[in-house]
């Protein structure tokens, strides 16, 4: 569904990605793990068109999207819950969802809202509250819900567990599994929380210094000694 072929990206003179290859197939959860500064978020943003690729190409469906502006990429069916959640703080929960649906057919709006409230019942209780007054976990749920409102074919999640309590992380990850299993949503999950991400994902990639250094199924990577040493030792 989404193929990243030998993609390189630079910020000015500093090259952040060096020929990254990633393949996401329909109906999969694919995770990308790596340390701070490995280039995880950069890859996700490159898929969305900012920064632009300096080498290689990104194909979504049949189409090369590497030269499209962000808003057109989104309209093709890629939705993103960006890093740091980025909900609209002064707008209500419902208005945030409405913003997510801005590229979707308005006829689906009520049904889609209902679907999001079913996934995240807490949002239903909070729906007329301003998004800025929500807790971190609720904002993350809203960010994912907002992304779902556009009826995407591919959902990109950037560190949904960042700064959240373990309980909430569990809940969010179970919702990700839910929408994947029940609705067949394809998910590309960028995470630092390698343990949870690899348990959830069908396949995973490990990124280090802008290169893919390992790939395999979630189980394989969980069992891999290097992965354990680098990302899983201590805790969990």
């Amino acid at each position: 569904m989404l193929t990243v072929q030998g993609v390189s990206t630079s910020y000015g003179h500093i090259q952040a990605l060096h020929g990254v290859d990633i393949d996401i197939r329909k109906g999969e959860i694919v995770t990308l793990i790596g340390a701070n500064g490995a280039g995880k978020t950069t890859l996700l943003m490159t898929i969305c068109g900012k920064p632009r690729v300096t080498g290689g190409r990104i194909v979504f469906g049949e189409r090369d999207i590497s030269q499209l502006p962000t808003f057109e990429i989104v309209r093709l069916g890629i939705a993103q819950a960006p890093e740091g959640r980025r909900v609209f703080p002064r707008m209500s929960v419902l208005e945030n969802l409405q913003m997510g649906a801005i590229v979707a057919d308005p006829a689906h709006f009520d049904a889609d809202c209902h679907r999001v409230f079913k996934l995240f019942p807490i949002l239903d209780q909070r729906k007329s509250q301003r998004a800025g007054t929500l807790s971190g976990g609720e904002q993350q749920m809203l960010s994912i819900g907002r992304a779902l409102m556009s009826r995407p074919r591919l959902l990109l999640l950037d560190e949904p567990s960042l700064g959240l309590a373990p309980m909430i992380v569990k809940q969010i990850f179970s919702v990700i599994r839910d929408i994947n299993e029940r609705e067949g949503m394809t998910v590309f999950l960028v995470e630092q929380n390698a343990f949870h991400a690899l348990r959830l994902a069908h396949r995973g990639y490990v990124l280090a210094n802008g290169r893919v250094v390992l790939q395999g199924t979630g189980q394989e990577l969980l069992a891999n000694r290097e992965v354990r040493a680098a990302y899983l030792e201590g805790g969990h």
Binding site: C48, F71, R75, P82
Partner: peptide, 8 residues
Amino acid sequence: VACRALGI
């Protein structure tokens, strides 16, 4: 930024 990410 969030606006762009939503297709605006």
